[in-house]
Amino acid sequence: MATQGFLARLGGKTKQIIATVVSAGAADAGKIGALGADGRWDMSTMPLGIGANTTQAAASEAIDAGKFINFWNNAGVFSMRLADNSNGRQADGFVNSAVASGAVGTAYPLDGTNANLTGLTVGARYWLGTAGGVIAAPLDEADAGNVNKVSQGLGVAKSATELVTDDEGYVIL
C-alpha cells in the first residue's frame, strides 16, 4: 500500500509531501502522520507512555504462541518460562508470538485477550494447566494429589480461539 501524500506550497512552489508512517523522533517534528499497512499508528509515532502494555523478557525455554508464561530471575536475568500448575509457576501473562529459547520476546499481561488458543468453548471458564496451557475445570482442592499445585483462574472464552483473561491471582493448594 502506498502512503498517501498531500500538496503543499513550499518556497512559492507546489510540492507533494508524503505523510510519515514511522517517526525518527525530533527530526520528524511537525510532519503529518499516516497509518501503516496494518491500519494502525506505528508505535514510534506515539507519545511516551502510550502503547501496548507489554514486557520484554528473555525466554529460558522455547515458548509457543498463545502459551501462558511465568516471569522469574534466571541467574540475575529477568526471564520468562512456561507457566505450569504442577510445579508452582503461576501465570503472569501470555505470548502472542512464539519465542525461541534464549531469545527476547514480548509478553502481554493478564487482563487482555489471548487470541492464539484452540478448542475453547464460548462462555466457558478456563484455569491454568501444565506447560503454559489451559484446562476446563479447576483443580480439586480436596484431592491430595493436588497439594502444592497452582490453582489459577485465567478467564472466559470469547470464541474457540480467544480467552479474555482475568488477573484473579492464584492459590497454592
Rank of each mutant, 00 (worst) to 15 (best):
M43R: 12
G25C: 12
K15N: 05
N96A: 15
T106S: 13
A107R: 01
F68P: 00
G33D: 12
L173I: 15
D143A: 14
Y108V: 02
L173W: 08
D84V: 10
D42M: 04
I17P: 05
Q152E: 11
A2T: 11
N70Y: 09
S101I: 13
T55I: 11
R40V: 07
A75Y: 07
N74T: 05
L48E: 14
I63S: 01
L110S: 00
V22Q: 13
D64P: 05
T130C: 06
W72Y: 15
I17W: 04
K149S: 02
N85V: 03
I135A: 13
L154K: 02
L139S: 03
G133K: 05
Q152K: 10
M80Q: 03
A157S: 10
T55N: 01
G132C: 10
G123F: 07
A59D: 02
P109K: 08
S23P: 07
R9S: 13
E168H: 01
A8M: 03
L35Q: 06
T130Y: 04
D92T: 00
A107V: 00
N73V: 09
T106H: 04
G169Q: 07
A24C: 09
G12H: 05
G153D: 05
A2N: 10
A124G: 10
I69R: 01
V156A: 06
D111N: 12
T118K: 14
K31D: 12
L35Y: 05
A136I: 04
K67Q: 11
G133W: 04
A107H: 01
G51K: 06
A103N: 11
V134P: 01
L120G: 01
T54N: 08
N114S: 12
G49T: 04
A62R: 03
T165M: 03
Q4V: 13
G11D: 13
E168F: 05
I50R: 09
K149R: 13
Q152L: 09
A100I: 08
D42V: 06
G133C: 08
F78R: 10
A24M: 09
W72C: 09
N70G: 02
T121Q: 11
A62P: 00
D28T: 07
A2I: 10
P138N: 11
R9Q: 12
N53E: 13
D38W: 03
I18Q: 14
K67N: 11
T118R: 13
V122R: 10
D111L: 09
A27N: 14
V104T: 15
M80G: 01
